[in-house]
């Protein structure tokens, strides 16, 4: 399998511009991204009720297809699907069929034979969700839950929801993403989203060894010096330092990284006083972020987790809705007055 062209816009949108898969933020309009955030706001309200469930996807089957392990993302997708009243099947493929030699295509054919309506896909290879969306039976929606270094669009959207909740807008905001940009699909999706929604400035703060080549072309400014990069910030997003990368000699040591790029209270004091602190988790305390900051008054890390459920409910119901619209094209809509 090769990495597919992520700009295949027609793949994830219906003829009239509705979402039918959710693979990447590339090419999605500000209007559509705002619709996702608005719909997620309505689902936040659902999450505060006695009965945190709506009947939208009743009778639908959602398969969490995780070729790469995950706790937070998988469980929030599972909870999102259940709160939409869907039936959920969790498949940890990394320990299952493919290790017995079954090909990806055969695995998918078998799952489609179980009358699944949606696949939530996480894969270590960039482009895997695209590949599946291209070959899947019409009517089945594909949601990207993170593919290789390419994209993690639901994570980026839950971050956008968190920013909007705390700042009320994107216009004029200065946002920095700090740490391992090179290996981060989250950072790529965040940069796309922030630019599409109209943030004033997106900075990436990292050592040269943890920046992809030509990173500016994504729509951000590079800052190697954290003290300078923290100035005037409204939002700082810390990324997890993937400890396994240390062995690749990309970094001198954890302690050295923390000294230069870790978010301590001293460094946070250089940003605006109401700067919020975000992290997609799981956090390495004392490696990329000081405990006092992670647990401090400016941290919104746990809000991000709550928002993750609402954003995933929004994306899942919108993609399913797009599949319905595509299938029902030419048929008459009903009126429920």
């Amino acid at each position: 399998m090769t990495a597919h062209n992520p700009s295949s816009q027609s793949l994830q949108l219906t003829g009239d511009g509705q979402l039918k898969h959710f693979l990447t933020l590339d090419g999605l309009s500000k209007t559509l991204l705002t619709d996702i955030l608005d719909t997620a706001d309505s689902f936040i309200e659902v999450g505060e009720r006695t009965i945190k469930k709506v009947p939208l996807l009743r009778g639908k089957t959602v398969v969490n297809l995780f070729f790469e392990s995950s706790t937070r993302t998988r469980s929030t997708f599972e909870l999102a699907a259940k709160r939409l009243s869907a039936d959920v099947l969790n498949l940890d493929i990394s320990t299952s069929a493919t290790s017995k030699g079954e090909s990806l295509s055969d695995t998918l054919l078998n799952l489609e034979a179980m009358a699944s309506d949606m696949f939530v896909v996480r894969h270590s290879q960039s482009g895997a969700p695209h590949f599946i969306a291209e070959s899947v039976t019409p009517g089945v929606a594909i949601i990207n839950a993170g593919d290789g270094r390419h994209a993690h669009p639901t994570q980026a959207m839950l971050d956008m929801l968190t920013i909007r909740q705390h700042k009320g807008r994107f216009d004029g905001l200065k946002v920095a993403i700090v740490g391992d940009i090179l290996h981060s699909r989250v950072a790529r999706s965040q940069i796309r989203a922030l630019n599409a929604l109209g943030a004033a400035e997106v900075r990436v703060i990292a050592p040269g060894t943890l920046l992809p080549a030509d990173v500016e072309s994504l729509g951000c400014r590079v800052e190697y010096d954290m003290a300078r990069g923290m100035r005037d910030l409204d939002v700082v997003i810390m990324l997890r330092l993937q400890k396994e990368r240390m062995e690749g000699a990309l970094l001198p040591s954890e302690r050295e990284f923390y000294r230069l790029y870790g978010l301590s209270q001293d460094k946070l004091a250089l940003a605006k006083p109401d700067c919020i602190v975000m992290h997609p988790g799981p956090i390495n305390r004392g490696v990329e972020i000081e405990s006092a900051v992670a647990d401090g008054p400016q941290s919104v890390i746990l809000n991000q987790v709550t928002n993750g459920i609402a954003v995933r409910m929004a994306v899942m119901s919108m993609a399913m809705s797009g599949q319905v619209a595509e299938r029902g094209r030419g048929q008459q809509g009903g009126d429920a007055a």
Partner: peptide, 19 residues
Amino acid sequence: SFYRDDFSRIGLNPKVKPS
């Protein structure tokens, strides 16, 4: 919007607001 019985025919109301 989240409780309509015709989701599987006409999909989600794009202008849904929180109750």
